[in-house]
Nucleic acid binder design. Structure first.
Lengths: 205, 205
DNA sequence: CGCAATATACATTCGTGAATGTTTGTATAT
DNA sequence: ATATACAAACATTCACGAATGTATATTGCG
């Protein structure tokens, strides 16, 4: 019972990735064995070694599946809605991150792995660079938005757009980190949205 | 050549902890073996098993060595200097965190391990709770400071002290995280202090 | 105050399990 | 007919914990 059709092959590949994500989140990346992933996916290690070179290769494939759409979502939400008010765009993209955390279980689990269940070392050290790269892009876009807001006279006096954007990036990274580690929800799970609103409100004139 | 004096025994214990911190930061917690730590400390695994039950035990001992003095530093810097202006106290404690990151290599390395080189899983899952606990205490103290500032009429209108404190906590956690992952220093290493200043400045009336 | 007796502080060795990567086998889509 | 998509089996490495060995600091006792 081997040699599946192309569609089935793609399916098992997706199954392996999905299983890897679950086990990574549960056991941590370094402690999960390929045998555990295989069992969760309903295959053997042979299947994994067929589709992926090794664990890091599978890990980054799992990541890519989420990070690419994620960047797109940010790009979409930032300039959209309220074209006259760039601050609303920043707020919207922050809220979108929060929405993903809340509603998109695949995205949430992936974030959880990246923030809490992975060591940035050896073959995974490049993850650092990857995260920072998308971060820089986000900062650049927010600089544009804040500069635009300043031109339109919406921004408070004495605020430097570049510094303000960096502050917002730090803020949203902090939100993600705290939201994920606040497992019982007492700290910020319910307050995150109003924190974002307050963060933006402080920037208005 | 065994059975050292009490002083020497304490020394080797400290050596093991120091070596553990270095190797943890270099290889990540899960990938470092006790043999590597032993080699770095100039002892054998036997010595480690004498002083510590196992790797998690050694890990938490290493952590305790830093976290206890750290909490004390926060408690000291927050209410100190400028007793008439609580906002300066918050600023001072944030700057102190930054100073530790910059100057105290032991603290920096320990932070680096906790943020980037450790998976919050199994025996290390409780690390999460521990971090959150000191975090909550910090938030509580800042709520006190911001409430005090409000009473004195220093705080901007419409700012809720509790929300403001949580925002500051998120901010400082974001600073730490980004500062540590910004290894080449291009992103925030030089700008962190002015970001803190701006963060506080935004809270003044 | 001196001398066993014993606890201490490790080093060394050993057995075991477990994860990895590879190789081989095989049934089936193309 | 052949390359594909795995499963199954194998060999190797390696980390852990425990057991054992041992030399020396302490300590109790006469």
């Amino acid at each position: 019972m081997v040699r599946k059709t192309k569609f089935e092959t793609a399916q098992t590949r997706l199954q392996i990735i999905a299983a890897a994500r679950e086990v990574f989140a549960e056991r941590g990346v370094s402690r999960t064995t390929l045998a555990q992933i295989a069992k969760a996916a309903g295959v053997t290690r042979g299947a994994i070694y067929w589709h992926f070179k090794n664990k890091p290769d599978l890990f980054f494939a799992m990541l890519e599946q989420v990070s690419l759409p994620f960047i797109d979502r940010i790009d979409e939400t930032l300039p959209e809605e309220n074209p006259g008010d760039p601050l609303r765009g920043v707020q919207a993209s922050m809220s979108e991150v929060l929405r993903l955390l809340k509603e998109d279980m695949v995205a949430r689990t992936t974030f959880e792995i990246v923030v809490l269940k992975c060591e940035y070392v050896d073959e995974f050290a490049s993850l650092d660079i990857r995260v920072n790269k998308t971060g820089c892009a986000f900062v650049q876009k927010m600089i544009g938005a804040y500069s635009d807001a300043k031109k339109r006279g919406l921004l408070r006096e004495g605020i430097d757009p570049a510094q303000c954007a960096l502050d917002s990036y730090i803020f949203i990274k902090g939100i993600i980190q705290l939201w994920l580690s606040d497992t019982d929800g007492s700290l910020i799970r319910g307050k995150a949205q109003s924190l974002i609103d307050a963060h933006i409100a402080m920037r208005y004139k």
